[in-house]
Design a protein around this nucleic acid. Structure first.
Length: 465
RNA sequence: GGUGGGUUGGCCGAGAGGCGAGGCAACGGACUGCAAAUCCGUCUACACGGGUUCAAAUCCCGUACCCACCUCCA
């Protein structure tokens, strides 16, 4: 079995052949920390987390670099509006992002570099580009440095566009540019900007342009050539096109494969256009658990557009609980078991991370497991149980993963509720033994009114919220 | 204007020439004191119009509608 990935640069799904056998270097464009993370933002993180977990499960040694853009125009604008330091806003939003990602079990990257910590590497790269004749300092004395699009014939190769067909940036400041499509590598400091948002450089004080940080940091941590570069589809142009042009013009081969995840939209529109905050992660997590939100995202293919709705999310949550219920009910009946991935699951994941088909395999194992469960403990049941655990681990959806462990206070609360409910259930069991059905049902209704469901199982009554 | 993607059953969501993904909902049956859960079964769809083929949701041509990107974006 070979992993195949859809490379958006060639628009082909092809075998994954790493530069170094057994190792995989991945660079993913993370977020600009300028506002609270919403459902759309974390999809990318979940998608690439699945890629990373699958490579690890397949035996690769994975270097996973995900950057965080901690200085840019938007951060400066928003912080000015809010009357806070730009770095305070960036740091606060970074903490929110970390919380959101932890809540959906996205593993921390191998390293998470930020632009502000890599100014020397960025300056070095810009100097290389100037030396090679692919960049120039603006002649208007602004301190800006631009990439010279016309000097790089391959410009546009990633997105198959011809420079002539591109619309010049209507809103971009054309001063000092040789061509309207040239983009900033370095932005000279302006008097309207905080003095803290500038670093020394050969072109005067200033800050990095948006695209250059990724080229510099990918180069630093993964080398001039690496395996996979990922991000959202919207980043293909200009961000990734520019990253590739800069890196290759500086003599670095850059990424072998480009992977792009599709959007989650609401009301047919991208979320950044949507108003309101109901889609912020903490709000969504009031409706479903983190593991259910992750299941919702994993059950669609990463290249498929998802139209977000709470109805669909809650439906996904129900589907996931079916899997969870099986594990809960099977666990006491399972003796020895070992984790092994079914072939169909491996085939699905190897086929460009076919998580929908992989999830279908999980459900098939669950159904088979449920069937076996009726006959009591067996080796076959242990196999199904192990399969389900192993598959969920790959998807980051294993309920017993400590990442999902409830906080201490939740644990305490569960104990308290359990003590109360057990008392009522004992009374109900006594009524049932006396065949006093009216009394038994009245107790069940009373518990239900508090939001707790009671189920009778061969091993006695069970309750769940 | 240029580039890319989409339209699948009541709903979500896969598939990419033949061999009915999966889930949710609904309905019927088994089990149950009644339920719940579980299992079995039912409902069997591919925007529209042509074409290619023994065979098309899948390939080709055309049409309609939707979305994304074209220097702020996951």
């Amino acid at each position: 079995m070979t992993l195949r990935l859809h490379d958006t640069a060639t628009r082909e799904t092809r075998d994954f052949v790493p530069l170094v056998p057994g190792r995989a270097g991945i660079y993913v464009c993370g977020l600009t920390v300028q506002s609270e993370p919403h459902v759309g933002h974390v999809r990318s993180a979940v998608n690439f987390d699945v890629l990373r977990r699958w490579l690890s499960a397949s035996g690769y040694d994975v270097d996973f670099i995900r950057n965080v853009t901690d200085i840019d125009d938007k951060i400066l604008t928003k912080s000015a509006e809010q009357g806070v330091h730009w770095y305070a806003l960036a740091a606060a939003m970074k903490r929110e992002l970390d919380k959101a990602l932890a809540a959906i079990n996205v593993l921390p990257p191998t390293y998470e570099p930020g632009a502000t910590g890599h100014v020397p590497e960025i300056v070095e790269l810009v100097e290389q580009l100037i030396d090679r004749g692919h960049a120039y300092a603006a002649e208007d004395g602004s301190g800006d440095v631009y990439f010279d699009v016309r000097s790089w014939p391959a410009y546009g190769e990633l997105t198959r566009q011809r420079v002539e067909d591109m619309e010049p940036a209507g809103d971009a400041d054309p001063r000092g540019k040789r061509d309207p499509r040239d983009f900033a590598l370095w932005k000279g400091w302006k008097e309207t900007e905080p003095s803290t948002a500038a670093w020394p450089s050969p072109w005067g004080r200033g800050r990095p342009g948006w695209h250059i940080e990724c080229s510099a940091m990918a180069g630093k941590y993964l080398g001039p050539a690496f395996d996979v570069h990922g991000g959202g589809v919207d980043l293909r142009f200009p961000h990734h096109e520019n990253e590739q042009a800069q890196s290759r013009a500086a003599g670095r081969p850059f990424a072998s494969y480009w992977l792009h995840n599709a959007w989650i939209t609401t009301a047919g529109e991208k979320m950044s256009k949507s108003l309101g905050n109901s889609l912020l992660i903490p709000e969504v997590l009031k409706r479903v658990r983190g593991i259910e939100l992750r299941y919702y995202m994993v059950s669609a293919h990463y290249r498929s557009h998802v139209e977000f709705s709470f109805e669909a999310l809650e439906e996904a949550a129900k589907a996931f609980r079916r899997i969870e219920d099986f594990l809960d009910r099977a666990a006491p009946a399972v003796g020895t078991w070992f984790a092994a991935l079914p072939e169909a699951f491996v085939a699905a994941m190897d086929d460009d991370l076919g998580t929908p088909a992989a999830v279908a395999v999980v459900h098939e194992s669950v159904r088979e497991g449920n069937r076996l469960l009726a006959d009591g403990p067996s080796e076959a049941l242990g196999q199904r149980f192990g399969e389900v655990i192993a598959m969920l681990d790959v998807l980051g959806l294993n309920p017993s993963d400590e990442a999902w462990a409830p906080s201490g206070s939740d644990d305490r609360m569960t104990e308290v509720v359990d003590a109360l409910v057990q008392g009522l259930l004992a009374e109900r069991t006594a009524a049932r033994e006396a065949k006093d059905w009216a009394r038994a049902d009245a107790i069940r209704d009373q518990i239900k009114a508090a939001g707790i469901e009671v189920e009778d199982t061969p091993s006695g009554p069970k309750w769940s919220v």
